[in-house]
């Protein structure tokens, strides 16, 4: 059984700032990491593999050459092999062009039983690529999964909904998008880190796909990001010096009068 985990490399967004003038991300000193939700998808793939010996985990990413480090993290975690789809032609791809490219890539694999994706990537936050991919591939999908269980050619999925959890099942092949899972991020052993360097990472380009250049990257995108901007920052509150309490109290009283609160 082949499980394909589609992953993305993202900036560690807790450290990213937006330049308010240019609307661009300031990536100085910001590390690139495997998208955490993709990592949760890997966790579920590994759970399946732990209980089903015949599971092969293939990871795939579309991105610049340095995105191979996101694949490397998956290989360290226990993926069997990886595919890097990289080409300058993919630059500027929106969610549609990305999903289409990945779908065409999946066609090149010799059969995929289950596609796992992270619920969303923490840089774009769209949560669109996974569902679009299922639609393009014409397979059923279940979103917000937190647990998986194989039952022959069916998969039972524990998923999060607004009220709590529910368990649903679908026939394979299908796609599952994964929500936040285990509280503790997997720690690899040094042996796993070293062994990952011996696993296969296949590199593919736009020329390997049955797509016209007009369907790739910016050209193939149906949407365009016009502007990126941070939320409006509220004016900071006023802090009174509490070192002299009577003075501070007088200032507070004066302020309340001034604003007609009292």
């Amino acid at each position: 059984m082949r499980v394909l985990v589609c992953v993305k490399q993202v900036p560690e967004v807790t450290n990213v700032q937006v330049n308010p003038e240019t609307g661009t991300l300031n990536r100085d000193g910001v590390a690139s990491i495997l998208n955490p939700f993709c990592e949760y998808a890997m966790d579920l793939a590994l759970d399946l593999k732990a209980t089903n010996e015949d599971v092969e985990i293939v990871v795939l990413t579309m991105g610049p050459p340095q995105a191979r480090m996101a694949l490397m993290r998956c290989l360290e975690m226990g993926a069997d092999r990886a595919i890097l789809v990289t080409d300058r032609k993919f630059a500027g791809a929106d969610t549609w062009a990305t999903a289409l490219t990945i779908a065409k890539m999946v066609e090149k694999l010799d059969g995929v039983d289950l596609v796992l994706v992270g619920k969303h990537a923490i840089d774009g936050d769209t949560a669109q690529v996974g569902p679009m991919l299922a639609e393009i591939m014409n397979i059923p999908q279940i979103t917000y999964a937190v647990g998986l269980e194989l039952d022959g050619r069916r998969i039972r999925v524990r998923r999060e909904n607004e009220g709590g959890y529910e368990t649903v099942q679908m026939r394979l092949p299908g796609l599952v998008s994964v929500n936040k899972g285990a509280a503790t991020r997997k720690v690899c052993s040094f042996q796993e880190i070293l062994e990952a360097r011996g696993k296969e990472i296949l590199t593919m380009t736009g020329d390997d796909l049955d797509l016209d250049d007009s369907e790739l990257g910016l050209q193939g995108s149906l949407t365009q990001v016009v502007k990126v901007f941070p939320p409006t920052v509220k004016e900071p509150g006023r802090v009174l010096d509490g070192g002299n309490a009577p003075m501070a109290a007088k200032e507070v009283a004066a302020l309340l009068h001034e604003k007609h609160f009292v």
Binding site: I33, S189, Q191
Partner: peptide, 13 residues
């Protein structure tokens, strides 16, 4: 054994 270890090299690790 290196199998019985924890390791990490990313900044967040």
């Amino acid at each position: 054994s290196l199998d019985n270890s924890w390791a990490g090299y990313e900044r967040r690790d």
